[in-house]
Computed example of a mutant assay.
Amino acid sequence: MRIAGIFIGVIAGLFSIGLWIILVFFNPYTVASPGKAAVNTFMMLVIPACLAIVASIMNKKYFLLIAFIWSLPISLYLALTPGIFALFIAPCIAYLICFLLMLFPKNNAAD
């Protein structure tokens, strides 16, 4: 279960960072410069993604919960938008799944 949690957490974090790069630098829906929106989305999407990557590697399950709660509001907002940015909800849900996988480890002891 720990390996699955590490894999899910790292992949979800990298996926979120990749989507953020597309959102800020290659967004077909805006013609304005990134500016303030880039800073806000960086703080709400990239920092929790980095926290989730580090937390999954170091097996810090409650940091994954923090990453989930931190990125949930903007992920829900972006889930209601058209196009590729609706996929921001997937890494957020993956943070929660990773937290649950680490919270309830498989018990290998025969009882």
Score class of each variant (00 low, 15 high):
residue 80 L to Q: 15
residue 18 G to V: 09
residue 50 C to S: 09
residue 41 T to L: 09
residue 27 N to E: 12
residue 72 L to T: 07
residue 61 K to L: 11
residue 53 I to E: 07
residue 81 T to K: 14
residue 58 M to W: 14
residue 60 K to H: 10
residue 90 A to T: 00
residue 3 I to P: 05
residue 55 A to W: 03
residue 107 N to S: 13
residue 95 Y to P: 03
residue 5 G to N: 07
residue 33 S to Q: 09
residue 77 Y to P: 00
residue 107 N to Q: 12
residue 21 I to N: 09
residue 44 M to H: 04
residue 43 M to W: 09
residue 61 K to P: 07
residue 62 Y to Q: 11
residue 75 S to F: 09
residue 78 L to V: 04
residue 54 V to M: 10
residue 103 L to N: 14
residue 50 C to A: 15
residue 57 I to E: 08
residue 64 L to N: 02
residue 69 I to F: 13
residue 76 L to W: 05
residue 94 A to C: 09
residue 45 L to M: 04
residue 32 A to C: 03
residue 78 L to G: 07
residue 97 I to Q: 02
residue 82 P to A: 10
residue 45 L to T: 02
residue 5 G to Q: 01
residue 24 V to E: 08
residue 68 F to M: 08
residue 62 Y to N: 15
residue 9 G to A: 06
residue 95 Y to C: 08
residue 70 W to M: 03
residue 57 I to L: 15
residue 15 F to K: 00
residue 31 V to S: 13
residue 75 S to I: 08
residue 52 A to W: 02
residue 26 F to N: 04
residue 83 G to C: 12
residue 88 F to R: 03
residue 95 Y to K: 09
residue 100 L to D: 00
residue 55 A to G: 12
residue 28 P to G: 08
residue 37 A to W: 02
residue 17 I to A: 07
residue 103 L to G: 10
residue 94 A to W: 04
